[in-house]
Amino acid sequence: MLQNSPSGFRRANISVAIREIAPTAALVRVYPERRSVTHLFESDFYLMLIDRRTEEEVARIVRRRFDKVADWRRAHDFYLPTETLYLTPEPHQNGYIPEDDHSFGLSLHRRIAIVGGER
C-alpha cells in the first residue's frame, strides 16, 4: 500500500494524485499560506475554475512532497508533465501571467527540485 511504503512518493505519484483531483491540470501555483490561495492552470495556459477545497488539497500535496526543499514563504509552481518545482516569477516578470509568454515561467534558473531528485 502506498501509505505504508517508505518510498510512498515515487516519481509519478504526485502528478497522479493531483490529476485524480484536477484531471486537466498542467501547472499548480502554490502561494504562501498567508494568501490562502492556490491556482491551477490547464495546458492551454488558462486558469482552472475549481472550488476552495480542491485548491487546498492540491496545495497540501505539493507542499508535503517538497517540504524540505522549498521556502513556502514565496510562491512556487509545480509543473505536472515534468514533475518539477519552480520558484514563481515575480509579478513584473515574464511567466507570472502564464498566457503572456506561453512558458508558465518555467526557467532553469527558477528550478527548485524535480521529483525523484533534488536540484
Rank of each mutant, 00 (worst) to 15 (best):
R19D: 04
S5G: 04
Y96I: 03
E56K: 12
I18P: 02
F41H: 10
D100Q: 13
N94E: 11
D51N: 15
T38M: 04
V16Q: 12
E55W: 03
I50C: 05
L47S: 08
Y31F: 14
S7W: 07
L108E: 14
G8F: 13
F78A: 02
M1P: 08
E20T: 12
F45W: 06
T84R: 09
P91N: 10
V16I: 13
E55C: 11
L80Y: 04
A70K: 03
E90M: 11
E56Y: 01
G105L: 08
P89L: 06
R53D: 12
F104G: 07
A113M: 03
E83D: 11
G117F: 05
S107A: 15
L85A: 00
P98Y: 06
N4D: 08
L85S: 00
E118M: 04
T24E: 15
G105W: 07
I18S: 03
R52E: 10
V30T: 10
G95S: 04
A17W: 03
R64N: 11
H92V: 09
R34K: 13
T88P: 02
F45Q: 02
I18Y: 04
F104E: 02
R35I: 05
R60P: 00
E57S: 09
G95I: 02
S107Q: 14
F45I: 01
A25H: 05
R64A: 15
R34Y: 08
S7I: 07
G117A: 15
R74I: 06
G105R: 07
F9S: 09
Y31L: 08
H102C: 13
S5H: 11
D77Q: 10
A17Y: 05
Q93T: 06
R60S: 14
A70R: 09
L40M: 12
D71N: 15
L27N: 09
W72Y: 06
D100G: 08
S5W: 11
V37L: 12
I14D: 01
G116K: 01
N94Y: 09
I18C: 05
R74E: 12
A17F: 07
V69P: 01
V30G: 03
F45G: 00
R73W: 02
A22Q: 03
H39N: 13
R110A: 07
V62W: 00
R19P: 01
V30E: 01
Q3A: 14
R60D: 11
R10A: 14
P32C: 05
L108I: 08
L27Y: 01
E56G: 10
I18K: 02
D44S: 11
A113S: 15
M48K: 07
E90W: 07
R74K: 15
Y86M: 05
R53S: 13
P6T: 09
T24W: 04
W72F: 06
L80P: 01
E56T: 09
T38H: 03
E90C: 05
R10T: 13
Y46W: 05
H109W: 11
A75C: 03
R110F: 07
F66W: 04
E83L: 06
D67Q: 15
G117E: 14
L49E: 12
L47Y: 04
A25Q: 03
L2H: 13
A22C: 09
P6S: 12
E90D: 14
W72I: 05
L47N: 07
V62L: 00
